[in-house]
Design a protein around this nucleic acid. Structure first.
Lengths: 186, 186
DNA sequence: TTAATCATGTAACACGTTACATGATTGC
DNA sequence: GCAATCATGTAACGTGTTACATGATTAA
C-alpha cells in the first residue's frame, strides 16, 4: 500500500505531469497521504518501468518542457486490483507516534508533554479548517474534470479525517484533565 | 520516529532479550505500533552500534543462550531527547490507507468496498476488545516491574486507541448509509 | 508425534526522508 | 532586483516487509 496507487488513482482522473501530481497531493490528498516531490518523480519512474503509466513530452513556449503522464490499461487494472483486493486487516497495521509518545510519557518532561498535547490539539483544529478548504477545492475539481460521481467518495474520505480529528481533540482534553489531576495532588 | 525509541522505552523499564521485546511489542504495543521479529533484532543491532544499549550473553540450561539487552546512559538521554523534542506537527504526517481506499473508491467494485468497510468495522470492534485485554496485561506488568506511575500513561495511550476505534466505527456506519442511499435510487 | 515455545538471525526488496542541483519566467 | 512559480530530478540514508534458515525442549 503506497504512493504508487495514489498516483495511479489521480492519473485515472486525467493525465498530469509530475509537477501537477505533486501539487494535487499537497493540496488535496495531504489530509491522508503526503509525499516528497522527489518521491513523486521516483515513483513515476517506477510506474513507467512497470508500464502502468506512459508519458509524452510536451514542448511549451516560455516554460520548461513537461512530461505528461497517462495511466495505461495495465495501470487501470492494477489500480482496480489494488482497490478490490487489499484487506481491511492491513488497515489495522498503522503506526501512531502520538500514542507512543504518551505511552512512554513518564520518562520525559511533563511540561514538554503538556505543551505537545496542546500543540497537537491546535494542529487538529487547524486540520479541520484545512478539510473545509480541501472540500471546496475538490468540489471545483469534480466539476472541472467532469466527474461528479467521485465527489461522494471524496466527501466520505473527508468525513473520516473530520471524525478522527474530533476524536483526537477529545482525547487531548481527557489527557490534560488526567495530567492536571495529579498536579493538584502535589 | 521509529521502532528504535519504542525499544529504548521498553528497555528503560527493565533489561530484556530481543525475543522478549518482540513478545511485549506484539502483546502490548501492537495497538499503536507493530514490528517484524527480524526488524527487532536488526534495530537492536543498530542500537548496540550507537551504544544506546549494551548486551550480556546469559547461558541457560536446556535452552539456547540469550542476549539480555540493557539501556545505557546514552540511550536514556536519547530517549528523553526524543520524547521531549519531537513535535506535534510530525504527528500530523500520518498515512491512512483506508482513507485512500475510499477516496479512489469509485474506480473499484462497489460490492468489494462495502465488504471491506464492514470488515473494517468488525476489526475495529475486535480492536476494542483487544484493548481491554491489553489493559489487564499492562496492569499486571505495572505491578510486576513495580512502576505504578507508568500505568496512568499507559491508560491514556489505550484511551486514544479506544476513541479512534469508536470514530472509525461511526465513520463506517456513515459510509454504509451514503453508499446504500444511491442503491435505493437505482 | 506433532505443535508450540524458546531463541537467534540474514538477505533482498520496498517505501519514505533529506539534502542537493538546475534554470527559466512572471509578478511585485 | 527579488521572490515565487514552473519543471525536473539524483544520491544517500533510514525504516519497514517478506522470505528464508536453524535447532533444541516441552506439553498434549
Amino acid at each position: 500500500m503506497s504512493l504508487k496507487h495514489g498516483l495511479l488513482g489521480l492519473l485515472a482522473y486525467s493525465p498530469m505531469t509530475g509537477y501537477e501530481l505533486d501539487k494535487v497531493i499537497k493540496e488535496s490528498l495531504s489530509f491522508f497521504w503526503n509525499a516528497q516531490t522527489s518521491q513523486v518523480y521516483r515513483e513515476l519512474d517506477t510506474l513507467k518501468k512497470k508500464e502502468w503509466v506512459s508519458s509524452v513530452e510536451v514542448e511549451q513556449i516560455g516554460k520548461p518542457n513537461k512530461n505528461v503522464m497517462s495511466i495505461t490499461t495495465i495501470g487501470e487494472n492494477e489500480l482496480r486490483v489494488w482497490l478490490d483486493m487489499h484487506t481491511a486487516e492491513d488497515m489495522m497495521k498503522f503506526r501512531d507516534g502520538m500514542t507512543m509518545r504518551v505511552f512512554f510519557g513518564s520518562t520525559g518532561d511533563k511540561e514538554f508533554l503538556l505543551k505537545e498535547l496542546i500543540d497537537y490539539k491546535r494542529y487538529n483544529e487547524q486540520f479541520i479548517e484545512r478539510l473545509t478548504a480541501v472540500k471546496s477545492i475538490l468540489s471545483q475539481r469534480a466539476q472541472a474534470i467532469n466527474k461528479p460521481t467521485e465527489k461522494k467518495y471524496w466527501l466520505m474520505a473527508i468525513s473520516r479525517g473530520h471524525k478522527l480529528a474530533i476524536a483526537n481533540i477529545e482525547w487531548v482534553d481527557e489527557c490534560l484533565t488526567v495530567l492536571k489531576e495529579d498536579e493538584d495532588l502535589k
